[in-house]
């Protein structure tokens, strides 16, 4: 297990390096510089600014500089917001984004699994059809459409919930629903089909033959096996939620990390692009690693296989 963890850790660093490099190449491939939009027609001023941020040097030197800043976790100040360092922006935005993300993923996972299990147990019944209709709707409606609908119906028309920002639990309800519905629908469908398959297995019949209660059979015997595909898809879902936060944060005016990310690309704010990209990718890679470790806890066969494989 230790060997596996070390191997995975080295791979994680490789992945982050590749992402950082690709980001750097793409960043330089886009025409324009941070100072293009500004009305600084004075070329001398622009040259000064570029010199200040090392932008007048060769791409290779810049690249080396970026790698160094990644390695030391110090991305320097933002070009556009000279009063903030990139680290300041991250430490201000990330807790809010993380809160939104974690709440949404938790809601999506819990409600998705419960919906899926109920649908499977009432296979081909009314509840099953209802749950799957909700699931198909959830997958089909993009989160930005759902967000605007929710704002219009619940905030503007009904006036029950606040329209925007992130200042109290009440404010969190709409963004969470908007962000969690899609993933919830995917999880529900997957849990249902996987649960239906598991429920026909002999060991479920055997558990019934032992005289166990339906609840014990479902939770202890069926769910643990049925959740394997759900764990597999969690990596993808987390990536989806991560990008979803950009959109949702924009719609609900939530001061999370997403706005810095989008803004920085629009404004060619190189240090911020670099910082947020590396941060997001590192975050995602770590999550995928955790997902992989979770397999071992759910299914003992996976652990053995890996130990033998290494």
């Amino acid at each position: 297990m230790l060997k596996y963890t070390i191997k995975r850790f080295l791979l994680m660093i490789m992945t982050i390096w590749i992402i950082a490099t690709l980001t750097f190449v793409l960043m330089n491939a886009i025409p324009g510089s941070p100072f293009n939009e500004e009305r600084t027609s004075n070329e001398a001023v622009q040259a000064n600014l570029e010199a200040h941020f090392n932008l007048d040097q060769s791409p290779l030197v810049q690249y080396a500089g970026y790698l160094k800043s990644i390695a030391t976790f110090d991305y320097g100040p933002s070009i556009k917001k000279p009063n903030d360092s990139v680290n300041d922006l991250l430490s201000r935005g990330f807790p809010i984004s993380a809160e939104l993300g974690i709440i949404s993923v938790t809601v999506a996972l819990l409600s998705g699994v419960v919906l899926g299990v109920i649908a499977a147990l009432r296979h081909n019944g009314i509840i099953d059809y209802l749950a799957m209709t909700i699931a198909v709707l959830g997958i089909s409606i993009p989160n930005f459409v759902l967000a605007t609908l929710l704002i219009q119906q619940l905030s503007v028309n009904a006036g029950v919930l606040p329209v925007a920002t992130w200042s109290s639990p009440m404010h969190m309800i709409l963004p969470t629903i908007a962000l969690a519905t899609g993933p919830m629908a995917i999880i529900a469908r997957l849990t249902r089909s996987s649960m239906l398959e598991v429920l026909t297995q002999d060991y479920i019949k055997m558990a019934r033959a032992k005289g166990l209660s339906p609840m014990t059979i479902i939770v202890k015997h069926a769910l643990k096996n049925a959740l394997m595909p759900v764990v597999t898809i969690m990596g993808t879902i987390l990536a989806g939620v991560l990008t979803g936060t950009f959109v949702i944060e924009k719609i609900f005016a939530i001061p999370g990390m997403g706005q810095y990310f989008v803004e920085s690309i629009n404004q060619r704010d190189y240090p911020v692009i670099m910082g947020t990209t590396v941060f997001y990718s590192a975050f995602l890679v770590v999550i995928l690693f955790i997902v992989d470790i979770t397999y071992g806890f759910l299914d003992p066969r996976v652990k053995i296989h890996k130990e033998e494989g290494n």
Binding site: D202, Y203, K205, M206, A209, H221, K224, N225
Partner: peptide, 15 residues
Amino acid sequence: SMIFQDPMTALNPTL
């Protein structure tokens, strides 16, 4: 009590 045909599938792999 009951014993099933295939012992490869009658036991829960995760317990």
